[in-house]
């Protein structure tokens, strides 16, 4: 780990602090409130599952936490940085250094090979020797023999492995996952869960994920439930 602030000795310090987060969208004359006064704290190295029905605002919340979008109201502090008040480019710089993503629909670029897809964030971050690092990661996720394959030539599970390799490539302190097993069958979903958890452990990354998958939610340390844009009572999940 390169960041002195991370590591087990700082576990009690919140990496993410959210206060009174509200997101509204205008639909013609109507205003639809997607998130309403959400406040939460996530500690360094924690794994948190955000659950809730479809349309309860999970993905929106994730997007705001990651600084992909700006809230109508409230504030997100990521490692002490006021994400919602940063400019787009400052947020991008923050994402490049500290944040990783895994999406439900993988979001691999179809024209690039597995290797090239994993190299993308490394190249943006001006990482020396991006190719070797990407190759190591793909080997770590079990795709060492599929480096030159394009997403079309990979199964869903394999594509998600590539996406996970990409997410960990820039050694993020926090990883956001949006239904990472949502598009996969049980067996494959299980494998992806294992991989995600294992990498999380190895790299000491904070994990925040939105999921419908009960078993995945159960493997997280905390579980936040969203109901119609409000945070329900928090349950401590697995010990």
């Amino acid at each position: 780990m390169t960041d002195p602030a991370s590591g087990p000795e700082n576990v009690s310090e919140p990496i993410l602090k959210v206060s009174n987060l509200t997101q509204r969208v205008n639909l013609g004359n109507d205003t639809l409130t997607i998130l309403q006064g959400v406040s939460l704290e996530i500690k360094r190295g924690e794994s948190v599952a955000i659950v809730g029905r479809s349309g309860s605002g999970k993905t929106t919340l994730l997007g705001l936490l990651a600084g992909l979008d700006t809230p109508s109201d409230g504030e997100v502090m990521l490692e002490g940085n006021p994400v919602s008040r940063l400019s787009e480019d400052e947020r991008a710089a923050l994402r490049a250094r500290r944040v990783g993503f895994v999406f439900q629909s993988f979001q691999l670029l179809p024209s690039l090979t597995a290797l090239e897809n994993v190299m993308l964030p490394l190249e943006l971050g001006d990482y020396p020797d991006a190719g070797r690092r990407a190759k190591e990661l793909l080997e770590r996720v079990g795709l060492g023999d599929r480096l030159r394959h394009t997403p079309r030539q990979l199964s869903g599970g394999e594509q998600q492995r590539v996406a996970i390799a990409r997410a960990f490539a820039s050694e993020p302190v926090i990883l956001f996952a949006d239904e990472p097993t949502g598009n996969l069958d049980n067996q494959t979903g299980q494998e992806i869960q294992d991989l995600l958890m294992a990498l999380n452990q190895e790299q000491g990354t904070t994990l925040v994920m939105v999921t419908h998958d009960e078993t995945l939610a159960a493997r997280c340390e905390r579980r936040l439930t969203l109901e119609s844009g409000r945070l329900g009572k928090e349950q401590e999940a697995a010990a």
Binding site: E88, A93, A96, R97, F101, L109, L120, L124, R166, S170
Partner: peptide, 13 residues
């Protein structure tokens, strides 16, 4: 899509 992804991954505008 590539542009959006690059920005998600932290590429500056």
């Amino acid at each position: 899509r590539e542009g959006a992804l690059l920005r998600t991954l932290g590429g500056r505008r």
